[in-house]
């Protein structure tokens, strides 16, 4: 019975869920406690990190949160909808440039730059997804790859707007109530607040009837058609939502590092984030958060200490992970007794 690749049921595992089967197992309150309390503890720990951690650590944690949000937005496509994209950094990059430009030329008052980043990221997905989601399989991979390269090239060549290959620099710090956030701890809190709201938004989307429809399309698209769903419409909407949240993550990234490079929209970034999703366990939402943490730590922390062999190390991590953990970190949770629902039934 454990042959069932029920990533979808794991995805629902984050929150209590109103299953009222004949054998409900532990009560809802108990389940809420077992899941809610660790989540709350984690949140408190994360929120208090700047109080005892060094600024460098706060910065790394901020990066992890941003890439985690980015990875979860991609998981909506890859894991929930079954659309593996090789160009998701395009929307991250569009969001980052949007937030940077808005901050430079208009205002850096929170949350204006990140909200516009999300909106423009979604608009970019509206413009490009229409074509991409009409294709499937390898063609979807190729099209998203092309879209990513297109955005990358645009960022390079529109140098009067984007700063070209020098990057868009001089992005002012985020302001809250007129005060610029300069300390790493404050920026971290800002990133944490927005990222948590982003996670919550994506989680709600995945748990909603809309999310169930996306999983249905992933599992059996022809059957969904016969149930009266237009897969194109739902995939397109998922693409746009994913683009919007990637844009939001990009906006946070611009606020954090205050420089945006064309490579942030390019293939390497897309590949890394896809790696984070696969490493963590596609379709679970929380797995990719762990995946993003590993990817960021290996690349940013250990990478420089290895004479620039960070990507090589990541490649090794990837190969080993896929070999040892075919369902990502999230697959490990399935081995813990009690973590999974009574999937075996009475058979």
């Amino acid at each position: 019975m454990s042959v069932v690749p029920d990533s979808s049921t794991d995805a629902s595992g984050v929150g209590a869920d109103p299953r009222t089967g004949p054998a409900p197992g532990p009560s809802r309150a108990a389940r809420l406690a077992t899941r809610g309390i660790p989540l709350l503890v984690l949140l408190v720990l994360l929120a208090s990190a700047p109080l005892f951690a060094a600024p460098f650590t706060a910065n790394t944690l901020s990066r992890i949160l941003i890439f985690a949000l980015f990875a979860v937005s991609l998981d909506l496509l890859v894991g929930i909808t079954g659309l593996p994209s090789l160009g998701h950094a395009a929307y991250f990059g569009v969001g980052a440039y949007t937030a940077g430009l808005v901050s430079i030329h208009w205002t850096s008052a929170a949350p204006v730059p990140v909200l516009l980043a999300a909106a423009v990221g979604a608009l970019a997905a509206v413009a490009t997804g229409w074509l991409a989601v009409r294709s499937g399989g390898v063609y979807f991979l190729m099209l998203t790859l092309a879209i990513g390269e297109l955005v990358h090239q645009l960022a390079q060549s529109l140098s009067s707007v984007t700063g070209g290959s020098n990057g868009l620099f001089g992005i002012p710090s985020v302001r809250i109530g007129g005060e610029p956030l300069t300390l790493a701890g404050y920026v971290y809190w800002y990133v944490l607040a927005v990222a948590v709201l982003g996670f919550l938004g994506l989680w709600l989307v995945a748990r909603s009837p809309f999310g169930a429809t996306l999983r249905g399309i992933r599992d059996n698209e022809p059957r969904m058609r016969s149930l009266g769903y237009s897969p194109f419409r739902y995939k397109y909407l998922a693409f746009v939502v994913a683009g919007g949240f990637a844009g939001l993550a990009g906006g946070l990234f611009a606020a954090l590092v205050r420089i945006v490079n064309p490579s942030d929209a390019g293939f390497t970034t897309s590949a890394l984030i896809l790696l984070a999703v696969v490493l963590g366990g596609a379709g679970t939402l929380w797995g990719p958060v762990l995946g993003a943490a590993v990817v960021v730590l290996v690349r940013d922390t250990f990478g420089p200490q290895l004479d620039g062999h960070g990507p090589l190390l990541l490649g090794v991590v990837f190969v080993v992970a896929v070999y040892v953990l075919p369902r990502g970190f999230a697959g490990l949770a399935g081995l813990v007794p009690g973590r999974r629902r009574s999937t075996g039934g009475t058979a």
């Binding site: 019975m1 089967g21 004949p22 054998a23 075996g344 039934g345 009475t346």
Partner: peptide, 9 residues
């Protein structure tokens, strides 16, 4: 009685 059983089973 099978409401929560995965279809594969």
């Amino acid at each position: 009685a099978r409401a929560d059983t995965p279809v594969a089973a």
